[in-house]
Design a protein around this nucleic acid. Sequence first.
DNA 1: CATATAAAGCTGGTTAACCAATTATAGTAG
DNA 2: CTACTATAATTGGTTAACCAGCTTTATATG
Lengths: 233, 233
Amino acid sequence: MKLDILTKTETLDLQKTIISKIRDLINFKNLEPGDKLPSERMLSEKFEVTRSNVREAIQKLEFYGLLESIPQSGTFVANIGVTAMNGMIEDILRLEEPDFKSLVETRILLELKTARLAALRRTDEDLEKMKEALDAYTEKVRNGEDAVQEDLLFHLAIAKACGNSTMNTFMLIITPEIITNFEKYHVCDGDQAQKGIQEHVEIYEAIKSKQPQLAKQKMKEHFKMLYQYCYNI
Amino acid sequence: MKLDILTKTETLDLQKTIISKIRDLINFKNLEPGDKLPSERMLSEKFEVTRSNVREAIQKLEFYGLLESIPQSGTFVANIGVTAMNGMIEDILRLEEPDFKSLVETRILLELKTARLAALRRTDEDLEKMKEALDAYTEKVRNGEDAVQEDLLFHLAIAKACGNSTMNTFMLIITPEIITNFEKYHVCDGDQAQKGIQEHVEIYEAIKSKQPQLAKQKMKEHFKMLYQYCYNI
DNA sequence: CATATAAAGCTGGTTAACCAATTATAGTAG
DNA sequence: CTACTATAATTGGTTAACCAGCTTTATATG
């Protein structure tokens, strides 16, 4: 995916315009699954934009499974009907930049699940990685240093141990944005860190002893402050 | 973002090689947050690959918040320490293609939550969109036609109504892959469709009457078959 | 007229040249 | 020696030319 999401608003608006024009073209010409779109060159001329712009828009629609480009041949409508095509494009166009509340809400949802699954499926190797991350975190905090990185790495170690590659990917996606917002809103002040150690240890122990419900419960407690903070913005 | 995920394995392997070389370079040169990386041209020469390849790798690391490119200036290490840098790059390199089981497991997790949240937060406009999707689905099924698209659009309408842009995005990301796998494994045969209507109606009614627990419960029942199917592959 | 064949033109993908803005360097005046 | 300016080199980003392969068309041949 190129969740190629990180372009400037200008570029992004242009891309949305192109995507909607492609949608209109598909509707107007009654293109069905398997039909070929006009070439990138023709589209760029018709829409009066550069071929690069057209390519980016097509690649985004390809990412969401709506189009398929075949080298030296053309770009084709994917095996998905006009109804779903219109519905999904509308959704894609309306996708907002994630707000902090959405990010945290989703993170909590994911982490309660990954903690539970990790307690069920963790390997000894997973456990070792978690222990390393936990020790690194503990040491930093005890030295009074900033430990946001180590905190995050412990949670990512859990995500890796949960044995679900999709959830692992999603955790990786939201992590940098979470960090950015944490720094912006000054979440996690120094006092919290000491309490954080104990909570991390409890989560670790629950996963180590393979107690899924306990792991979930401890993770829930760990997020208690964050949860409240997030809902009071 | 580019969860630019849809490249061939060859290209992807090359990208992973480049990413690991960038990591090695950061470690070897002890680059810290804010430090500048060598220029794209130098890296492409050093790694003996094209500049395009280097750019793609950098863009991926930028997507995960590890690097930051500034036009006419250079590419910089993000405000994230060497520990987190190494940990996250390792995770990124080991990211697997999602298996069907992971996809379904994640979808169920997301949809139980979005149904509950939609019951809490839906607007009248959201409800209207859901009704339209539901009616379209019902009609297709009653005519004995394939209704996979309409099914999917109903679920996406719920995701949109849940008021969480991150979950909405994640649903859009996994949907095309879910469809592909459904077609591959021939999930959802004709008989299921009739039962599906009733289940969809019950979910809709629960969200309409703003009963979050009921909505979640009905969604759970709706996924019962899929859940079992997925765990018996 | 049918069919095989070759050639011309498109296709998405890739590469190399170009651009504007920034940064480093050299020079000069004070 | 310092401070400021002008110039040259370097940067990521963009554009246009190029490429290999597929599709269609024209042509020749039976």
